[in-house]
């Protein structure tokens, strides 16, 4: 039995001023994500989960349920109000990595994590070449040798099947599916142990979506990178994930094996979600 690579405990984020009630650790009891006394928005609260090496953990939920907030907290894009994250690659998971210095947080982002956003504008610089985008990440991670950087970048561009003659093109001239592939290559090039995928196939047509999903699946199998996949598409989740978390109003309402959650949803919202999916 292997140890979890990422252990998230009691994560909480309140957007707004917050008050004594909603900032308390055991704040859980309401049916929406707005604090009844101060009106702050609860981004997420009471989030606990583990990610094990090599697995893909799915997070599903409706828009505004806090899926991306959780992912952004892990990637340090948003600062959490409270909680603890232990990462096995940092001091054997004994240290709360939310309390790192900004320098070390940057290192975590560039070396240990990779992230793929739904919107490629967030993950790529559209005004430098695709190669440059991926190379930038390696430079940030500490590589300095030009030819080894280029080899590595080309290696990963090959893995995501980007056409060789387009390596030097700007991502702004690419189709959505190609931009997504550049993002995935960029995320993987520094050899991260955790890949964060925020709706990686949102807005793509089905054939391109299929290619991206196959790519994610083969990466997970070949490179054994652990992943957290945020999606609201149950079919995508069913295809890729063995375990999932269901979120609503910033809280985890159900967690379990994917087939269990889909075949025997226990919570009211999960039942609505499963029965809403087009078969």
């Amino acid at each position: 039995m292997s140890q979890p690579i990422l252990n998230v405990k009691n994560l909480k984020k309140v957007f707004g001023t917050g008050c004594g009630i909603c900032l308390k650790n055991d704040y859980f009891e309401t049916n929406d994500n707005i604090c009844s006394s101060c009106g702050s928005i609860i981004g997420c609260t009471g989030i606990n989960f583990e990610v094990y090496p090599g697995e893909i953990l799915g997070i599903v939920g409706e828009s505004g349920s806090g899926k991306s907030t959780v992912l952004n907290i892990i990637n340090y894009n948003i600062e959490a109000d409270s909680g603890e994250i232990n990462f096995s690659g940092y001091k054997n998971g004994l240290f709360n990595i939310l309390n790192l210095s900004s320098q070390e947080k940057r290192k975590m982002q560039n070396v240990h994590y990779g992230i793929v956003y739904q919107n490629p504008h967030l993950g790529l610089n559209f005004n430098i070449s695709s190669e440059g985008n991926a190379a930038e990440r390696l430079l940030m991670a500490g590589s300095r040798n030009f030819s080894s950087i280029q080899d590595k970048v080309h290696d990963y561009f090959g893995k995501v099947e980007l056409p060789v003659n387009r390596y030097k093109d700007f991502p702004k001239f690419f189709s959505g599916g190609m931009q997504q592939r550049v993002q995935i290559a960029k995320a993987l090039v520094s050899g991260p142990s955790l890949l964060l995928l925020d709706e990686p196939t949102g807005g793509l047509d089905v054939s391109v979506q299929a290619k991206i999903l196959d790519l994610i699946r083969s990466i997970s199998r070949e490179l054994k990178v652990a992943m957290i996949l945020v999606s609201h598409d149950m079919q995508v989740i069913r295809l890729l994930c063995k375990r999932i978390i269901v979120m609503k109003h910033g809280r985890i309402i159900e967690a379990g094996l994917t087939d269990r959650v889909i075949d025997d949803p226990l919570e009211s919202y999960t039942q609505t979600l499963v029965h809403s999916a087009l078969q």
């Binding site: 379990g256 094996l257 087939d259 269990r260 075949d263 025997d264 226990l266």
Partner: peptide
């Protein structure tokens, strides 16, 4: 049998 295999809880 699904309960045994944890297909159902």
């Amino acid at each position: 049998i699904k309960c045994i295999y944890r297909n159902y809880k």
